[in-house]
């Protein structure tokens, strides 16, 4: 079945997977510590928050938009949540904390949706504005201090491990339960994009907004959902980040949005909309995390990290374009004007 094989090569997920495999084999051969359980658990741990953000960014990019405000939403939601809980002396389960943070995220996301849908403003500009506004609001009116004494449930969450172990030289390592949140969010987003009418509408919107409207989708409803959903995921990511780092730092996260967008784009989502998948995005997240992690294992100073991510992003975006150019079919002269 040569066509099946060709299809596989055309699939972005396959190419990213191959790159990851190559990278792993290379790093593993240089430093065998790469394949050790502590390192693998470490990779997973670093993927959790990046991955949750990336899922939200994926949904926006598939719809043909771009969102740079989700880190600001995450910080604002987690900080307000933490402050509220401390003020109330909350001692209940983690679930309610999550819900609170997610609802705040939802409200902030809907602010984005309002401007995008009602005024039909470019998504990049709106989210730049809200990013600045949300962060400014947080630091100016809510607080700008680190909070290191967190509610009990959050501390407990950070200590919740699925697996624990001790290396021969006595170092503890563990697989945090937080990865379940990533998997859950990924599963839900995957099913949503693939099996719900809403998900198909998101792809339709990204493919051709005019056609989507003609077919009968309500664009504003889809947009409200998209930006609301990103807000929810941002709230979730923010509270998990805070719990895992055991500190609510209002200066955190903002600035990492470009990393997230890089991961999504590397995972095969097209910035022009309509294309992208959850498995691809997870692979993209994996690639970015492994890349950062492997530099250390390869003995490359950590300050090379950004250069590596930059090169990776450029190569990752240039490669499909250049590949497509060489594959360009001969009947390109055909008239396809309307």
């Amino acid at each position: 079945m040569p066509s099946r094989w060709n299809m596989l090569w055309k699939k972005n997920e396959f190419l990213v997977g191959l790159t990851i495999l190559g990278l792993c084999l290379f790093v593993g051969s240089v430093n065998s510590a790469f394949w050790s359980l502590p390192n693998l658990f470490d990779l997973l741990r670093s993927s959790v928050v990046l991955g949750i953000f990336a899922l939200g960014a994926l949904v926006v990019i598939v719809s043909g938009g771009i969102d740079v405000s989700f880190t600001a939403v995450a910080v604002l939601s987690m900080y307000i949540t933490t402050k509220l809980l401390l003020a109330w002396g909350y001692a209940g389960p983690f679930l309610w904390i999550c819900l609170l943070s997610c609802s705040i995220g939802l409200c902030l996301g809907l602010v984005n949706a309002l401007f995008i849908s009602a005024f039909r403003l470019p998504t990049l500009i709106v989210t730049l504005g809200t990013m600045s506004a949300f962060r400014g609001f947080l630091l100016a009116f809510i607080g700008s201090n680190h909070i290191s004494v967190l509610p009990q449930a959050m501390v407990a969450f950070s200590q919740w491990d699925l697996l624990r172990g001790r290396t021969p030289d006595g170092v503890l390592y563990s697989l945090p339960g937080a990865v379940l949140f990533l998997f859950g969010a990924a599963l839900f987003t995957w099913a949503l994009l693939r099996y719900s009418m809403l998900g198909r509408g998101i792809y339709a919107l990204g493919g051709d907004a005019v056609a989507a409207e003609r077919v009968g989708f309500s664009l504003s409803r889809i947009q409200f959902f998209i930006y609301g959903y990103v807000g929810v995921l941002a709230g979730l990511g923010g509270i998990i980040h805070t719990s895992l780092s055991r500190m609510a730092n209002p200066f955190d996260l903002v600035g990492t949005e470009m990393n997230v967008l890089a991961a999504v784009v590397l995972g095969g989502a097209r910035i022009t909309g309509g294309h992208g998948s959850v498995p691809g995005t997870l692979l993209g997240v994996g690639l970015v995390v492994i890349m950062n992690n492997s530099l250390i294992l390869l003995g490359v100073p950590s300050y090379w990290q950004r250069v590596a991510v930059g090169l990776l992003l450029l190569a990752g975006t240039a490669a499909p374009i250049l590949l497509a150019r060489t594959r360009k079919r001969p009947h390109a002269g055909e008239e396809e004007r309307s």
């Binding site: 198909r200 792809y203 339709a204 493919g207 051709d208 005019v210 989507a212 077919v215 009968g216 294309h275």
Partner: peptide, 18 residues
């Protein structure tokens, strides 16, 4: 008014599903 990024089947079915 088709969706270039979706499959033939999805394009045909979209109206009916809606």
């Amino acid at each position: 008014s088709l969706f270039p990024n979706l499959t033939v089947a999805e394009n045909m079915a979209m109206n009916t599903l809606l």
